[in-house]
Each structure stands twice: as C-alpha cells, then as structure tokens.
C-alpha cells in the first residue's frame, strides 16, 4: 500500500473511522477503522461486495450519518463535531450529492432542481457557471420540464448538475449509474470525469461496475467495513482482476 504518487492537499481525511449498529452479540460493524485521504481535484471510486460498507462510508463522509468512532475532516472542518443544523448547512453549501434514484423533487422543474441548494441558501446562482454546468450536462432544451417528463439518464444528469452548481468542496455519488443502461451511464460518468478534469472538482463515487470505476483516478476496495486494497489509474480490466482476487481470497478466508 503506497501513498498517492502526486502530493496534493486532501479534500477529505478520515482517521480510524468506525460505524457500528446495535450492541452486544448482535453488533454489526458496518465500518471499522477506516483511515483514508481523498485528494483535492481527484476522482475516487469505492468498490466492494454488497454489504461491505460503501454506502455507510459515503454517508459518514458526507455528513449524512454520524460515525461511532474516528474523525472526518472536510478541509479543516471536523464533521463529527458539528451539530445537526451546521451539518445541514454544510451539506447545502459545501457538498454535492447524486443518489442512485429519486434524486429530484417532482414538483420542481429541471432548472429549479438544479438551483435548489442555492435557493435553500438564499444565494443567487452564478449565471456563467450555471450556463457552463447546463451546457456540460447537455440539458439546455429540457430545463423547464418536470422530472416525470425526463428519462432516467436525463434525471441523473440533472442530479449531477445540481451537485455541481454550488461549486461544492466534494461531490458524492452513490451508484449514480446503477439504474441506467450503458449509454446513459457513459453520459453521466463522462460528465463526472470532465468536472474533475476541467473544473478541478473532487468526486467520490460508489459503484459496482468496473467500467464505471475505470473513469476514476483511484479505486478503493472495501470488504467487511475495512479498507482492503487500493488501485491507482484503474482500467476496467485491472479493476476486474482485483475484484476476482479479493473474491477468491475472501472465499478462502471464509
């Protein structure tokens, strides 16, 4: 396990992060002792078998869930010390989200959905940046449609645009392409990729798909709530190989 080759400021750092459910004999450690850094302007993928704690990690990083041990530093803010209100405002102002589905508020148009975090913060959108974002996701002619009138891929692109519009510190995506076909997936992933390359956005994405992971700069592998492996500059093949290897080793272990 080597340190990232390029030395950059970390967007997020965790120290001994743990999250457990229940107590006593029924206690489940969804995350245990995860210490990791996510570099600024980097695209990181998180992979692992179902139930390995990927979503839990993402939620802890994003201030949606409270770890039971350890720390999460977003820049120099310790998320574990913030109260509910401060966390909410932090999510609004400094974090972007893309979920697997149900990303949009059905009563709002695509454009209103995109600007929602800014509207909640009572901030005016930066028109030039908004144009750039809309241009990039390629939704110019769909901005005034309601989500119900958009395809699944288009909805996910709107969600990506929303995640980016407030120029957040980090964008988190939990299986953003889980419900999409390969073409729509490629659109969404291409967009996330460009946001990192062209705008220097930091992106952390959970995925099951090796092809999706290949868009990232770096892949973290989780198993049983622990950090197991890490792969830099992944390709679909190298990701697949690593997955196979982990799978057989855990099979041996089991």
């Amino acid at each position: 396990m080597t340190a990232p080759p390029v030395q950059q400021a970390a967007a997020i750092t965790t120290f001994g992060l743990g999250r457990s459910y229940g107590s006593g004999p029924t206690r489940i450690d969804a995350l245990a002792d995860v210490s990791v850094e996510f570099g600024q302007g980097r695209f990181t993928a998180i992979m692992g078998p179902s139930g390995s704690g990927k979503s839990t990690l993402l939620h802890c990083l994003a201030g949606l869930d409270r770890p039971t041990s350890g720390q999460v530093l977003l820049g120099d803010v310790d998320l574990t010390r913030l109260d509910e209100k401060a966390l909410t405002h932090l999510r609004r102002d400094r974090i972007g989200f893309v979920f697997q589905a149900f990303n949009l508020v059905p009563t709002l148009t695509a454009l209103e959905n995109i600007t929602l975090p800014l509207d909640l913060a009572n901030r005016k959108p930066d028109q030039a940046w908004l144009d750039v974002v809309v241009q990039t996701v390629g939704l110019k002619d769909r901005l005034h449609h309601k989500p119900a009138e958009l395809s699944g891929g288009q909805q996910q692109r709107v969600a990506c645009a929303r995640a980016l519009v407030s120029r957040p510190h980090v964008v988190f995506a939990d299986e953003p392409t889980g419900n999409l076909d390969s073409r729509a997936s490629a659109d969404v992933l291409g967009f996330l990729h460009r946001s990192v390359r062209e705008f220097g956005q930091t992106v952390v994405m959970v995925t099951h798909d090796p092809t999706a992971a290949a868009y990232a700069d770096r892949v973290l592998f989780l198993a049983d709530g622990r950090l197991h492996e890490e792969l830099a500059d992944p390709t679909a093949e190298s990701v697949l190989d690593t997955m196979k290897r982990l799978d057989s080793s855990s099979a041996q272990a089991g």
Binding site: T88, H89, R91, R92, F99, L104, L116, P117, L120
Partner: peptide
C-alpha cells in the same frame, strides 16, 4: 418521506 429525505440531504434545514 423520500422526497423530504432528499431535501434534507441536500441541505434543507428544519425551519425551512
């Protein structure tokens, strides 16, 4: 419920 969860996730606070 879902929609409210989403709104909360992207930063709607309780007074809002």
């Amino acid at each position: 419920t879902r929609e409210i969860g989403l709104l909360r996730a992207i930063g709607m606070d309780r007074p809002q």
